[in-house]
Design a protein around this nucleic acid. Structure first.
Length: 310
DNA sequence: AAGACGAAAGTGGTTGA
DNA sequence: TCAACAACTTTCGTCTT
């Protein structure tokens, strides 16, 4: 029997949404097997277009795609009731007065203008961040759309544009299963202080709640590739780490756990197995978690999967 | 000396009575 | 609204390599 057709399991084609693209290496990776699908597809498949140079330089300033950048598009001003807007009840007389004032402002069409200004500024910021992260156009659009919605619901009022932009970009990335952390996005937006980061996290949760959107957890496998390549680990380690993640999921170890920490532990374990040991600290650093989390995860996994030392 | 380990206490959020 | 809870972090003393 020919070896090419011999193995049924390996022949299972990778579903398109389980293939990621690494622009640095110009290579695609299957998240089911960890297999590297060499080159091909530099071309025009819609999914990868966003990564090509033309697309990046084509990031239009204000006035780009109809979908989000048109000044008066989609402005269905809707203030809702007074108690709405931030998810919290409006406490205190002064705040109530302000809310009424804003409502009046809308009627006069003045706040409308400033709201649009705010949105345009935010979209410009989103553009910058998206370019730095090399995000696909669809993600950028999603982020802009989210910001628009949030702004129209009054969620942006009293919060900095930067911290709200960080929140929507993070949300958009997660919606599209692009592995990223709140931390790195915050860092890109120069939100370095601890309380600034906490603010971003709060914004994110608030937005998810008030806009009533459901955002998936990013699959740990997607972090595996990211972490492993940041550490310059060879492909077989990635394949193994992905296997470890899948085994862990089967054993029910993954629910409610930080996918990044989980991936970090899998990479750490796989690196031990392949004798290309990285320290817990190194892995933790690129994963954006602490050594302790890596340690805890990997201990759990090793125990459940009966992985003895090295 | 550096890395790994585990305990203990703290943080910020969620859930459920 | 409050208390219990889970996940993660910080810190630290102690082994191990």
């Amino acid at each position: 029997m020919s070896e090419i057709h011999g193995d049924r399991e390996e022949r299972e084609p990778c579903p398109p949404d389980k293939i990621i693209y690494d622009p640095q290496r110009g290579v695609r990776i299957c998240l089911e097997t960890g297999e590297v699908l060499e080159e091909q597809i530099i071309g025009d498949e819609a999914e990868w277009r966003a990564y090509t140079p033309e697309e990046k330089s084509r990031r239009a300033r204000v006035g780009g795609p109809v979908s989000y950048a048109k000044p008066h598009m989609g402005i269905d001003v809707y203030i809702g009731t007074l108690r709405e807007g931030s998810g919290r009840k409006i406490r205190g007389l002064s705040k109530r007065i302000e809310a009424i004032r804003v409502q009046r402002g809308f009627r006069m069409g003045r706040t409308l203008g400033s709201l649009e200004k705010n949105i345009n500024q935010a979209i410009q910021l989103i553009d910058e961040i998206a370019a730095k992260l090399e995000l696909p156009m669809a993600v950028k659009e999603e982020a802009a759309k989210l910001y628009r919605e949030a702004a129209h619901r009054g969620l942006t009022r009293g919060r900095s544009i930067e911290s709200m932009v960080a929140a929507v970009v993070y949300a958009a990335c997660r919606s599209h299963q692009i592995p990223c952390t709140l931390d790195e996005i915050s860092r890109l937006l120069k939100l370095r202080e601890a309380d600034a980061k906490r603010e971003v996290a709060r914004n994110y949760r608030l937005m998810v709640r008030d806009l009533d959107i459901r955002i998936p957890v990013i699959e740990p496998e997607r972090f595996v590739y990211r972490i492993a390549s940041a550490l310059k680990l060879p492909d077989p380690v990635i394949v193994d780490a992905i296997k470890i993640v899948k085994e862990s999921r089967r054993k029910g170890l993954t629910a409610g756990k930080d996918p990044s920490g989980l991936a970090a532990a899998a990479v750490y374990l796989a690196s031990l197995k392949h004798g290309v040991r990285k320290t817990q600290k190194e892995v933790a650093n690129v994963a954006g978690v602490t050594e302790v989390t890596v340690r805890n995860r990997y201990k759990e996994i090793a125990k459940a999967l009966n992985i003895n030392n090295v």
